[in-house]
Design a protein around this nucleic acid. Structure first.
Lengths: 261, 261
DNA sequence: ACACGTCTTCCATCGCATGGAAAGCTTTCG
DNA sequence: CGAAAGCTTTCCATGCGATGGAAGACGTGT
């Protein structure tokens, strides 16, 4: 019997569909069943089934004994080649120093789209095993690291972000004019401040980490409002930022080696 | 003018081609140009160009200012969802303890195909900033961690690996019968030994890390031949393996939460 | 036993991936 | 300085293979 013509593909390319399967996984969904993947990607089950099979063959996904799927170790391996890893390696020892000297939580972030991507974060008290926000995003306009990155970002991105700054707390600054002035001050002074603008009861200072070609990341310290003076943090923060900048010089511009077949 | 019929696709699926582009990147090639990618994947330049464009749109690749490509931060983020990350987080504090008490280099590895995948590695002397073999592979038949993993692996994998054990040093054991006996001993004794079987001048001991459903990883200590007695290492190694096993219990079987659109 | 949800296989249709060709561009060399 | 070599990008006619509805197998709950 002739089958009625299939409603066929919307417009997305074959590859983009396969990749959207990967996007179905996130912090809250480390493992998914086929049906869940189909729903979350809005793909027909049959199509999802085929794509998932391909991704498993490429080891980007792994089928678990119970039949569900998880992100494969291959992705982790590939991720080690991405820029955040090199920065993370370079920064880690200095982050530890900074945690020890300040006693507060510290983190490093890079500019990623219209957000700050947290590359590493170390908690202040060693009692807590570092709930890992690494991999998470922070807003650019109301966090210390975000302001540093935004202040040194291209003009157009800066203006785009200032167009509609989201409010997180009663203290969040949402006036573009005020923010513009703050960002100019960040460039001048070399550090950025945020006081309860993202989370109540928390303030942060951040400074830029520079590479061969300008600012590549931001280093920030988080402290409770009750914590003493900014002055106590600025000096070690500055030292750590300089140290990371120094060890980052030879990172990122790596191999240019011979060609290959 | 009518174009001669295109030689068309060999047989690989569209998706597999796109993914093969990712495989073009490795430890020695953090950044590649379009032409290099085309060569390394054996794809026509035009095809590679289109695929690379798609991967960039999905943020799995990033175009660098100089025009070349690198693995994108998105891959790093996805990699954080993969099993090795959870294991790594759980193991790290205990690895540090073990490094301090033994003074030697330690590492954790999981079974990946026919190799041991190194999940984390910490150097003994703090002078060296840990050349990161994380992400690298070790052979199963001639390393401490490899033997532990192989000894607890399914029968068929075990036999497959024993079929043709590669020689790395004059001390590498390549006799299947001897290896079989060693592996049985590993299961009985709870630890595996390798003396110069992989690298000359280095011996290693390893023990299994267990999860809810058997052995999930191996914890190993590397030491120079000149280092003193095995007995000095066994006890702290055992303690660390137990500690990691304990904190790994709730890892891997995570969210089974509500469904989703 | 029936209803429901999941996973898997099958296959007719036509959308879109494909790759040769040519143009624009930069770098290297004589 | 002009030519040559290499890299990147765009174009588009062709037909391959991605697509998704349907049906069957399986497991589970009522």
């Amino acid at each position: 019997m002739p089958r009625p013509p299939i409603r066929t593909a919307p417009g997305r390319s074959a590859t983009s569909r396969a990749l959207s399967v990967l996007d179905a996984f996130d912090e809250r969904h480390h493992t998914l069943t086929l049906a869940q993947i189909a729903r979350r990607t809005s793909l027909p089950v049959a199509t999802a089934h085929r794509l998932v099979g391909e991704l498993c063959r490429a080891r980007l996904l792994r089928r678990r004994p119970d039949g569900s799927y998880e992100v494969g170790a291959r992705v982790w391996q590939l991720g080690l080649l991405a820029p955040p890893t090199a920065l993370r390696e370079a920064a880690l020892p200095h982050l530890q120093d900074l945690v020890i000297t300040t006693g507060h939580t510290v983190h490093v972030a890079v500019l990623e789209g219209r957000s700050a991507l947290v590359v590493e974060r170390l908690a202040g008290s060693r009692t807590q095993p570092t709930r890992h926000s690494p991999g998470g995003y922070l807003p650019l306009h109301c966090t210390g690291v975000g302001k540093v990155l935004l202040a040194h970002a291209p003009r157009d991105l800066r203006e785009e972000v200032l167009r509609a700054p989201a409010r997180y707390t009663p203290w969040t600054v949402t006036d573009p004019a005020v923010l513009r002035r703050q960002l100019d001050a960040v460039v001048m002074s070399g550090h950025a401040l945020s006081t309860q603008e993202h989370h109540e009861g928390v303030w942060s200072v951040a400074m830029p980490v520079t590479g061969p070609s300008g600012v590549v990341a931001a280093l920030g310290v988080l402290a409770p409002l009750t914590a003493p003076r900014l002055a106590d943090v600025l000096s070690p923060l500055s030292a750590a930022a300089a140290a990371i900048s120094a060890s980052t010089v030879d990172v990122g511009y790596g191999v240019d080696a011979a060609d290959d077949a």
